[in-house]
Design a protein around this nucleic acid. Structure first.
Lengths: 196, 196, 196, 196
DNA sequence: GATGAATGAGATTTCATTCAT
DNA sequence: AATGAATGAAATCTCATTCAT
């Protein structure tokens, strides 16, 4: 006795992980409303009740699944501004493509009215960390005098990432060299005035 | 004789318009799957059957509603590149905000697997026309020597529009002066090399 | 003036006939409940309202359609009892097969609770006339001393027609020579006792 | 350990039986298309979903209900051919009357195009077993020399059962002594030629 | 803890019938 | 007379959630 774990059989951590994985996968492929708990249960190899045992509602489950989403490891920095910015942007694009990220983003946007947690989580776990990464690289570049000292770095970050979304909306997603193009434009646009 | 009207009671154009309006409104606020024909019927003040009389399925109705979506009149051009580009971008942002456009875009993205027509229509009716507008302004600027002759104008268009999406994703939607910032960056980044 | 026909455009007799024909056809192929007025209207080349203009309800229409059903012309009698009985039975079987009669009979039986007129009409227009025909032939045979004077002729008629139904129910419909078999059995069974 | 029952709450056998009973009852009284799952659920005292849990569709349910239909125990044989044949026929007629069998048969016939399983099941479960019973009795009679050795026994079975259907179609269903009449006719018709 | 049964609240779609032209 | 529009009342099937074992 004297043990502190709660009584009874402990919940299987494996099942929990399988459920979350299945939920995220289905959230992406089906969207929030189309995704059914039956599908999740079948994909995770558990019963529907097992899901409800851990999360009170479908919304809670999906929120939990999104909480598990995280920006992957940042690509290693080389010290060269252009190279490093391009690397982060390409990693971003590759990730979005790999996990059908635009569908996931779409679902979160579509549900913003009903379940604002979704887009909030996506922001917190993926968007903002990546922006921070880009921001740091730009800050370093500014400190080195590669870009103007009065540049609005947040605005610059949006200028780096934005073309990806705009391309996708135009049906030009996956355009080669988009990252180089974006980085070059931003660096050129923010180049400090030639010293006098 | 000489009758050209078809026989029987004519279809009410009012009802048709009301249905399409209600469908678009609900598509935006609820998303495709959550939106129900009951809601549409109630909002339009018609019976569900009246909807089915005109469109065979929910998908058809939504497609028709999106077909009615159209980029509004372009803002009048002044001839000044910066002013005109900013005007188009601000009109774009205002429209998106007014019709809760990001939710609509989200729905279309989320449904891309099940109903690819949605995002396709959105592209055709709103995204591409606006890109064409921006492209023409940039072309004019290039002809005037305001931007480099070798600039990739499509890429530039994405650079103009992109920050709007990136800001929204970062939770910075509606940032003041975003349009000016985007235009200035692009114009600066594409400025022709100083003649020497 | 002075004319007795009611005022206004007279109803088209062609349309009326086309509707009844289509209704009977669909009643047979779909059954009463599955048959829709839309189908009837389309098949008859008229509008649904034109149907309602003439018959108050679906039941009325179907009843009218069944009223038009009639046993075809009786095959000409040769005077030979066996030959004539067989001819009537084979004509019966051929008719049933031609118009998918068992499906029609099935519908009328199935609807007996809701619309007893259907089976009643079928009886009156097809079953009873044919039975009368067979009855007359048997009567003639009895008068000639070919069958017993105390034979119950109605019972004999059922014995002639019955095997057709029983075969169908057993999945043996269309068995060759069924009519000869039935006639021979009845004639043998009812043969008068050999005179002393 | 050693547990053989499957996990979870066991499916209620009572409910299952009640649903099937209600379905058969309603199939008979309403016909296939008119019968609704709401009616079945209400009559069985379960929710509609409980029905769908067990049978994927209305068609499946009805098929299952018909599969449960079975010819009742055969009446005990006395050894006397006439008595035993009459007993089987009267049991047949009583059963049909008790369960409003002609309506059920009508539904199955009417649905033959859309759901051929129905009439097939009826054949397999009720028609053919009873025919087999009658066939055996006739075979025994033939072996005893009570009927001709060259008699077609299947044809004879149809001659025994057929009058029931023919009577019903003529509106003479339930005619007293129909069974005796049919048996006597068949036995007389098939009597072996007097030995010389 | 885990499972499968059971359910109530819809959602889409169909259809006989009534209205307006 | 004839047509097409409009409708109300279902009917089948789905799904998140709760119960019983």
């Amino acid at each position: 006795m004297g043990e502190s774990r709660s009584a009874g059989r402990p919940r299987s951590a494996d099942k929990e992980a399988a459920i979350l994985r299945a939920a995220l996968e289905l959230l992406t492929s089906q969207g929030f409303v189309r995704m059914t708990l039956d599908q999740v249960a079948a994909a995770a190899g558990v019963s529907k009740s097992t899901i409800h045992l851990r999360w009170k509602s479908k919304g809670n489950l999906v929120t939990a699944a999104l909480e598990a989403v995280r920006m992957a490891e940042a690509p290693p920095a080389t010290g060269d501004t252009r190279t490093d910015l391009v690397a982060v942007l390409e990693d971003f694009a590759a990730t979005v493509q790999r996990v059908r990220g635009m569908a996931l983003i779409g679902t979160c946007l579509a549900e913003e009215t009903h379940t604002p947690e979704l887009i909030a989580l996506l922001r917190e776990r993926t968007v903002l960390p990546r922006r921070a990464l880009l921001g740091e690289l730009l800050e370093r570049a500014r400190d080195r005098g590669e870009i103007r000292t009065d540049a609005d770095l947040e605005e610059a970050v949006s200028a780096l990432l934005g073309p990806f979304y705009a391309d996708y909306m135009a049906g030009r997603g996956g355009r080669p060299a988009w990252a180089e193009g974006a980085v070059d434009l931003v660096l050129a646009g923010l180049r400090p005035p030639a010293a006098g």
